[in-house]
Amino acid sequence: MSPRVIPSIIGVIVSLNAAAWLASPRADLVVRPADMPVPGRGEILIRNRALAVNPLEVKQGTGDLMYRWLSYPMILGEDVAGVVEAVGPDVTRFSAGDRVVAYAVGMERGRRHDAEGGFQLFTVVREDLASPLPESIGYTDAVVLPLAVSTAATALFQDDALALVPPTPGPAGTGTGTILVWGGSTSVGMNAIQLAVAAGYRVIATASARNAGFLRDLGASDVVDYRSPDVERDILAGLSGESLAGVVAIGPGSGAPAVRIAAAAGAKRVALLSPPVSFGSIPRRGRRSAAFIRTMSRVAIGQLAIQLRARAAGVRAGFVWGSTLMANEVGPMLWERYLPDALADGRHVCAPAAEVVGDGLESIQHALDRLHAGVSARKLVVTL
């Protein structure tokens, strides 16, 4: 074979794209070819080196529970880390060859669903939803961040959530008061703790005793065991007379105690990130079942009860959708002004810990199955 032909063949091979497609509700992902995404204005194309899986993707795979506007077949996936392959017009922060971690928003309404889906070899992401990745942080470590840190920032700083003072450049934030993070050992919780501390707030978190030490290392002043029968009383006692600036409620069943604590402490805002009950009992395969109907009925009743209790107490309890930061100032604050420096100097830790469960797009389904069965205090990651 002519030496001139070899580079040409290699170029064709590396330009091919493939994705893990969800072809129908409650089906397994199938790996097959996908069009090569092309970055548009303000976008970059990433050759993915690591992907992470999230509960939202599990819920969508369980049967149209979240993203009703998507059509089949679809490419799920939000957490990506890799190398910039190409940049679109007007991109100024990145060049080809840069190492990045990014939030892929292809599952969101109004986006290019296939091009911006994460579960593929190449993904288009918005420049303002990406951060440079220092050489000291591996792709598998960084990829735990995007959806979790974006959701945490939305809950803490967005005007229609807790509306807290965001972090400022440098180590000292200007926020005052205490934030309660119920569900501190979750992916969102670990990032919410770090962001709130960076913004200047004191943090009380709930978690099991085995995770308490790590949450303190992340900056939590107090960690209360959520399984204690006195958990609400202990949290209120831990305020020590300080004002409660707001509550972030993460995990099934967290909304009701969060509203009660806010009402008792005089806080006016609760950011809700989870349904009242878990979707874990819904079978992923087969037709919609009695378990599906029971679970969704309990969700509706539970949400109504939380809203009625919050309204009676004068507490604003609103659900948070992490991707809304791409339409307001929270997105640039997080991805352009906070994360690049905070990751470079170690102020923001990539948490939770990554657990690599396979290599290649074919491993994503295994990761989703593992997550559906239950995972605590770690993020499941697939390498590419």
Rank of each mutant, 00 (worst) to 15 (best):
A207G: 07
A267Y: 06
R4S: 15
V91G: 10
T295K: 01
L361V: 09
R99I: 09
I13C: 12
A351T: 12
M74S: 14
S289V: 01
R216I: 00
M190C: 06
G42D: 04
Q307C: 00
G88A: 14
P7R: 13
P167W: 01
V101Q: 09
T62I: 09
P171H: 08
P257N: 03
G82L: 12
I137C: 11
T154G: 07
G77N: 04
P73G: 08
A96L: 05
P229C: 06
T151G: 09
Y67L: 14
P132I: 01
V12K: 13
S221M: 07
D217Q: 10
C350L: 05
G322S: 14
D79M: 04
A205F: 10
G40C: 10
L162P: 03
L164S: 10
S254W: 00
A377N: 15
V144C: 13
G255I: 07
Q158Y: 11
V12G: 04
G63L: 09
L380D: 06
R68I: 07
L380I: 10
G286M: 03
I282C: 02
N211V: 01
L162N: 08
A142G: 11
E232F: 04
A50P: 04
V188Q: 08
R227I: 02
L29H: 00
V105D: 11
L65S: 03
A148D: 08
D28F: 05
Y201N: 04
G238D: 09
V259A: 05
R370F: 05
G246W: 05
A263K: 00
L308Q: 14
A155Q: 08
P332G: 08
S243Q: 12
T206C: 01
P25V: 06
V12L: 15
W335S: 06
S297K: 10
P257M: 10
A86R: 13
I10R: 14
E116M: 12
A148N: 14
G280N: 14
G360S: 09
A212S: 10
I6E: 07
R216Y: 00
G286R: 00
S323Q: 11
I261R: 08
S208R: 13
G255Y: 03
V349S: 10
G82W: 13
